[in-house]
């Protein structure tokens, strides 16, 4: 019973914190946009505009929720919910801090900073959930009964399916090295060998990063939205909180992907002088959590910075990049890694 209670507390903490974080990520995004364009950005509500996200949230809720008469109503309502759900449940296997028998002790066992610790298929689960995210977009586009939305939905389905393949292949190098799909095992391996994934798998990191941008629909790959060509893409017909949910979903994806990049390739909670696993207790756990969180925040800022650096791809170039560049590179990376590993281990 106590276990289930702890689980519920963990789940509500993760849900609450990520949703709150999303609100402030939007502020960060606007501030970075302003900086890139030599503007000041939101600065009217509260000191430095810090209350802006709350006001924005209230605005989202209070706006009139228009459901146009020509839409396919059940699917139209289902689509934003699917977006949120698929973005949220991926967090079940993401470790937010050190997981293992050496965690800080509370009650009668070490705390695991992960909703579901010890999942053997960890990263596969994230890929499985991530592959469902396409439903939210494609259904929104279809149900809107509007040709711009529909084009956005079709583009996105093709884009997401295509980029899933190199994304899945790019992590295989790391999986081969570590010998496990468990995210904790991957961090522990980097901790033990004093080397980050980016050093041993530079090509894998590069491919994963590019695919991560495509999977989150961020610029330079935001073809499903592409406001100059498609009005608002798949969410043209949505208003009020239904639109807000798509927004929320996108930023949740950015958080998940940033965690994945940091855990797979940037050492996770690895801190240079804290490699001894016997160092337990609250202080060390806190340091490790902050290290992980700091890296993730830097990664998120990087994602937002890229938005103002690169222009959007043309659609055919986008597909070419996936099928003719990324997939062969990912296969080559996998084969080379496997060969080298076999030769080294003998």
């Amino acid at each position: 019973m106590l276990e289930i209670l702890g689980l519920l507390i963990k789940i509500s903490l993760v849900v609450g914190i990520t949703q709150g974080a999303v609100a402030y990520l939007i502020l960060v995004e606007r501030k970075i946009a302003a900086f890139a364009q030599d503007r000041i950005g939101p600065n009217r509500v509260g000191p430095l505009g810090l209350l802006q996200p709350i006001v924005d949230g209230v605005k989202m809720f209070l706006k009139e929720d228009v459901t146009p008469g020509y839409v396919n109503k059940p699917i139209f309502i289902l689509a934003p919910f699917l977006t949120i759900v698929t973005a949220m449940i991926g967090f079940a296997v993401v470790p937010f801090g050190p997981v293992g028998p050496n965690g800080p002790v509370l009650m009668d066992g070490p705390i695991q900073f992960q909703i579901a610790p010890g999942i053997d298929i960890g990263i596969l689960y994230i890929f499985a959930v991530g592959s469902l995210a396409v439903y939210g977009i494609i259904l929104a586009g279809y149900a809107s009964n509007n040709k711009y939305s529909f084009l956005g939905g079709l583009r996105s389905s093709a884009q997401l399916i295509s980029y899933e393949i190199p994304m899945g292949m790019s992590i295989l190098g790391m999986v081969l090295l570590v010998g496990s799909l468990d995210l904790n095992a991957i961090v522990e391996w980097q901790d033990k060998h004093h080397v980050w994934g980016i050093v041993v798998q530079p090509l894998g990191f590069f491919i994963f990063l590019i695919c991560a941008f495509a999977e989150t629909n961020r610029l330079p790959f935001d073809l499903p939205e592409s406001e100059q060509e498609l009005v608002g893409g798949f969410h043209t017909e949505y208003s009020s909180m239904k639109f807000g949910m798509f927004f929320l979903g996108e930023y949740l994806h950015v958080i998940t992907v940033s965690y994945l990049v940091v855990i797979l390739f940037l050492g996770g909670w690895d801190v240079p002088f804290l490699t001894d696993s016997s160092q337990t207790g609250w202080l060390f756990a806190l340091i490790k959590i902050s290290a992980l969180l700091g890296k993730v925040l830097l990664m998120i800022v990087f994602v937002m910075w890229i938005r103002w650096t690169l222009p959007r791809f043309r659609y055919d170039r986008l597909m070419e990049l996936a099928w003719k560049r990324m997939i062969p590179l990912a296969i080559a990376n996998m084969v080379v890694t496997a060969t080298v590993l076999q030769l080294v281990r003998g």
Partner: peptide
Amino acid sequence: GFLAAGTVIVYAGA
């Protein structure tokens, strides 16, 4: 678990 994740990725996702 592996079969479950594989089924979701291949069938539902693609």
